[in-house]
Computed example of a mutant assay.
Amino acid sequence: MLSVIRDSSNVPAGDRGLAYGDGLFETIRMRGRQAVLRGLHLDRLVTDAARLEIPVERSDLDRTITQAGLDFEADFEGIDWVLKLILTRGSGGRGYRLPESCQPNLIVSVSTMPPVPDISGVVADFSRFPLTVNPQLAGIKTLNRLEQVMASREFTGREFELVMRDVAGNMVEGTRTNLFCRHGEKWLTPPAGSLAVAGVMRKYLIDCLREAGHEVVEEFIPPSIVSAPDFRGLYLTNSVVGIVPVRKMGGVDLPVGGGLETISDPLKTLE
C-alpha cells in the first residue's frame, strides 16, 4: 500500500530514499488544478518505478495530483506553481538489501514557479564536472542527483544553465534540462541511453516534431557543433520552464530562431 506524506518533516528517518537515494521523483508544472504533461509524467513515474521494482498504481498517483490541485490551487492566486512528487521504496531492509515486503512512500511538496526565461535567449556554459550514466539506470529521474549537485557549484550567476558532457566530451544534458540542436534541416538530441534524465518534455517535443514532419535524430552531439556553418540553434527543455533558446554558449554567440518554440505548446496539454 502507498503511504502519502504531505509534510516532509514526517518522513521517517529510516526511509530508503533518504538513506540511499532509493526512489525517484517528478516535478510538475501546475496551472490551478491542472497539470502540464500530466499523462507523460504519470507514464514515466509508473514505468521507471517498475524498473526499480517499486510497486505503485497509476491511479494512486493520478489521484494524488488531483488532490494536490484541490488543496493548493488557492495558495497561488491564479499563478502557475510546481508540484513535486517523491516516490521512495519506504523503510526496511538490511543495509542496501531490499525489504521482504515493500510499502512505498509518496512525499508531496509544492513551490512557486521559477522565473520565466528571456524569450530572446539565455546564456549557458559548459560544466567541468563530467556526467556518467549507468546503463541500467539511464533516463530514470532517481533521487541520486549528486553529479548535478556538484556541477551546480560552478554557477557564477551569469548562466541560466550549465551543460554537462560525458567522458568522451559530448554534450549530454544540462544540470536540469535536456538538449535539442537544429543542424541544417534536422533536429538532434542525445540518445536516451546516454541520459541521466530522459525528460517528459523531451519525449513530448520529439513526438511533436515528428508529427509535424521534421526529422529527429538521436545521436551524440560534440560541442564543436555550435560552430558548424549549418548549425541553427540550441535549446534547453524541461517540463517546468518549457523551451528555452540559448543565445550564448561558452562565450560563443549562437543563432536564435530555429523555431522549436513555435512547433509545440506544452500548455495545451493541461489535464
Rank of each mutant, 00 (worst) to 15 (best):
R58S: 09
L98H: 12
S91G: 06
L85N: 00
V56E: 06
L98Y: 12
A68T: 08
S59I: 14
L70E: 15
D62T: 00
T64V: 13
S59E: 14
Y96L: 11
L85H: 05
R89E: 04
W81R: 04
V82L: 08
L70G: 14
I86Q: 05
E73W: 08
R97M: 11
I65P: 01
L61K: 02
L85I: 04
L83C: 06
R89A: 01
F72Q: 12
G93T: 04
I86A: 08
L70Q: 14
R58N: 02
G69A: 08
V82P: 03
D75S: 15
D71C: 09
Y96R: 10
F72V: 11
S59N: 12
K84E: 09
A68C: 08
P99M: 07
G69L: 04
L85K: 02
L98S: 13
I86K: 00
W81E: 06
K84N: 07
T88E: 07
F72Y: 15
G69E: 04
R58A: 11
R58H: 06
D60M: 14
T64D: 08
D75L: 14
P55R: 11
S91M: 10
Q67P: 03
G92Q: 08
T64C: 11
D60Y: 09
T64K: 08
R89Q: 05
R97W: 10
D80H: 13
R89S: 06
L70M: 13
T66E: 14
D75Y: 12
D75E: 15
T66R: 12
L61G: 00
I86N: 05
G90R: 05
F76E: 00
G90S: 09
S59L: 13
L83F: 01
R63K: 11
E73C: 13
F76G: 08
L87T: 00
Q67R: 12
S59W: 10
D62V: 04
D62W: 03
A68D: 01
S91F: 07
G78K: 11
P99I: 07
P55L: 11
E77M: 14
F76V: 09
L87D: 01
L83T: 07
T88N: 01
P55H: 10
R63T: 12
R94V: 12
L85G: 06
L87Y: 08
I86T: 11
L87Q: 07
L98A: 14
D62L: 04
W81K: 08
R63I: 01
G69C: 05
E57Y: 12
E73V: 13
W81T: 04
R97I: 11
E77G: 14
G78E: 05
R63C: 09
W81G: 05
S91C: 14
T88K: 05
I86S: 02
A68K: 02
A74V: 11
